[in-house]
Design a protein around this nucleic acid. Sequence first.
DNA 1: AGTAAAAAATGATATTAATCAGCTTTAAAA
DNA 2: TTTTAAAGCTGATTAATATCATTTTTTACT
Lengths: 231, 231
Amino acid sequence: MTMLDKSHKHVNCQTCGARKTSLFANNCENDVALVDEQKSCAFYKKNQPLFIENSFPRGVFCLNQGKVKIFARGDEGKEQIIHIAKEGEIIGFRAMFSGEPYKVSASTLEECNICFIGKEDFLNMIETNATLRNGIMKELSKELGDRAIFITNMAQKSVRERLAFALLILGDVYDKEEINLTREDLANFVGTATETLIRLLKDFKEEGIIEIHTRKLEIINKDKLLHLAGK
Amino acid sequence: MTMLDKSHKHVNCQTCGARKTSLFANNCENDVALVDEQKSCAFYKKNQPLFIENSFPRGVFCLNQGKVKIFARGDEGKEQIIHIAKEGEIIGFRAMFSGEPYKVSASTLEECNICFIGKEDFLNMIETNATLRNGIMKELSKELGDRAIFITNMAQKSVRERLAFALLILGDVYDKEEINLTREDLANFVGTATETLIRLLKDFKEEGIIEIHTRKLEIINKDKLLHLAGK
DNA sequence: AGTAAAAAATGATATTAATCAGCTTTAAAA
DNA sequence: TTTTAAAGCTGATTAATATCATTTTTTACT
């Protein structure tokens, strides 16, 4: 039990449920065993930070269970959510290579199980394991492409269109579950004011696109969303 | 002389002016000689495309001289400029690793000298030359961080603030030269309507922040811009 | 140099979305 | 279980910026 109230349980890489979808997926048993030795795992409560903007990275986080928001803060401290990570994702590896401090913060959105791999160990693996390295490079590249689209959406789409787009992304992130975010977080993902977001959610509900179960959202007409988002 | 009107001159890597600032900078003479063999160089006129969105990459471009805009198109075909590359930059390497088609287009903003290195050759070098590879990974990572900030700016800053921010970036890109972009391109970089941009430029001029020499812009009060951009 | 086309600039108007203020419901804590 | 706080919601108003229409200037072409 640490000061941050994380209870350290052991999560075994060989049997980790996230492994099949993770970047570590294609590594041979040998390497997985190696990761297993080097990592430390922890249970995180809701709304706990993994790292914050402008600090220097000590390693990467492997999200075993739960959701984590990745966000930047604007000049007035308002959060802009860049990405919502789900189980299986590696978080914070960008700053391993850039030589810069973090440009974003990461914080849990719900209870999470997260493993930590130190910078040295991680970079060693990247250096020696070409498969893992290529996976990481592929991921960096994909995200870079996604962000070009994100920027274009922010610049050219209306809030309504962006909300549709955001809900489609969140539909994938939350998969079979219902989307479970505060209105404020959702607004900070879409890039709008909370009040505006609430009004639009109501519209979407009245148009039969979503159902609202207090704070949880259920998509009931994905086609309409796709059409609205302009795809 | 090709159909695309590029006259093929030989540009020598060993003596290339861009080399000192390029990712290829730290490579030993051996590797530079290798690049020299594998590349083909061409002269590009203004407004020629290097590649377009959704097509598949055949290699990377090394910008020897000139400026190139990297942009995505929104649903209505409007360009959103993501980045303006200057001499020394390698263009289009993201798509080498992602396995996806290009998510952005690239087009010259002025007369350019550009070398091309085929995918096979490039990936070979990445695989065998750790220094180059690390440089590329660093670059991917830096850009990813920059884009998080870009997204946040688009979401939270006013057009006026974004213009200030854009001019600061362009001040670096154009270095000692004056900023030389059409109003439309500048608007598409800031993410606003051309008319709005023109009005704001006038304001900036009246406030003694910039000088307008027909289409070229000169920054005369960088401190004010820094303050306006919120840094 | 003279003409056509593209880019830049201006004015008027419309629209979107932010802001402000107050109210209600839900969740958390004592 | 009562109280308090946080989150969610609603309405009115304002401000920022897009859009549309037109004119002027600059650039490119013959």
